[in-house]
Design a protein around this nucleic acid. Structure first.
Lengths: 199, 199
DNA sequence: CGTGCATTTCAACACCCGTTGAATTACACA
DNA sequence: TGTGTAATTCAACGGGTGTTGAAATGCACG
């Protein structure tokens, strides 16, 4: 009803195919090394079509990163049960997310952020404002200490992701989530609630 | 005496200038984005000269990474004083090294390893055989548990280096070495000697 | 002096890149 | 059926890349 004239835009198949190919390429090779031409070829499509749908390479990257997961939605699960064992639950959550499809976008963002300036900015902003800051206020951490505590947690979790998903250092890459959560949970717990000066 | 004929090879000035420019470029941009042409330009030299001295880009990278520091030499200092406080001493050592000139090569290796396959292999091999394995045997860690323990330590230290020197996440990037050592030392200590299954 | 050799430069090759504009195809509506 | 519009492709531009071989330069020795 009230049909507008002409063929409607957006063939969902090819659009999604391009996005999928882009996500894989960015995850495996990072922003700079992933080429529009290779993405188009993987989607069995002309490079110009990628540009037609998504504009510049930057815009394609943003579209590929778009809302693979909303950290705000996951926080309640981690917080349920109070401060006790929150560290272990956080690690468990991280591993569940990164072992799933959303991990691809994460690896893409990390791979890109290490060499590319504007994706690095994107990454930092996402981590600080969308993840760390929210978690700190939600957990009612002393605002004075929050920055250092969140930095320590970021380093431990970032290192885990780095070694397990990006560099794939063994045996960490294939250790069970339970074992990792048991070993690393207390660390996060202490960074969150423990005493940070000396033993 | 017994002078060989002709002009001797290897003008030390330009050779070292090229190496320095290469180290900076690789550290700031990673293996792939660092270009021979830019390195040559920074050293005020023709690109072909770089090739004349060092061969292919791969070989130049290897020459730039060559022996900036020998981890085996640093281990004794960390181990002096026994197991007590070895975690904190390790963090202190790491920060001292990475805040110095050798940190440049390290950042270069990390930046490259994230996007480039063969530098990633290089990095993994260096970390496992030159650093972790030696430390584990030197500290007489149970060989059964050594791989997981060294993986955990690698993740914490790798994360620290990542956040402080590569991504430069604040406030970790400008926190004093003492504060970081005090906060992170116990973590390493536990990964090294503590109980890893649950609390 | 002259000759050999190391240093340095120049110019070019072949390749890949992101992006663009025009041309072609095919569908949905009037 | 005709027409507008979206989907799709083709060919090309300008620029950057690593690498190469030949040429030029200048020093050290016989």
């Amino acid at each position: 009803m009230a049909g507008r004239s002409g063929r409607r835009p957006g063939n969902p198949d090819t659009r999604e195919a391009i996005l999928g190919a882009a996500r894989s390429a960015f995850a495996e090779r990072g922003f700079d090394k992933a080429s529009i031409r290779a993405i188009a070829s993987a989607a069995e499509v002309d490079p110009a079509l990628v540009h037609h749908y998504f504009g510049t390479k930057d815009q394609l990257f943003l579209a590929a990163m778009e809302a693979p997961i909303d950290p705000a939605q996951l926080l309640p699960d981690v917080l349920a049960g109070g401060l006790d064992g929150v560290g272990e639950r956080m690690i468990r959550m991280i591993l569940r997310v990164w072992d799933g499809p959303a991990g691809k976008a994460g690896v893409a963002l990390i791979r890109s952020a290490v060499t590319n300036d504007w994706t690095a900015r994107l990454f930092r902003e996402f981590i600080t404002t969308q993840v760390l800051r929210r978690a700190m206020t939600e957990l009612k951490v002393d605002p004075e200490e929050a920055p250092l505590r969140s930095g320590l947690i970021a380093s431990q979790i970032g290192g885990l992701i780095m070694m397990r998903y990006v560099i794939r250092l063994e045996p960490l890459a294939s250790t069970s989530p339970e074992a990792i959560a048991a070993a690393m949970g207390p660390t996060v717990q202490r960074y969150l609630t423990g005493d940070l000066s000396g033993v």
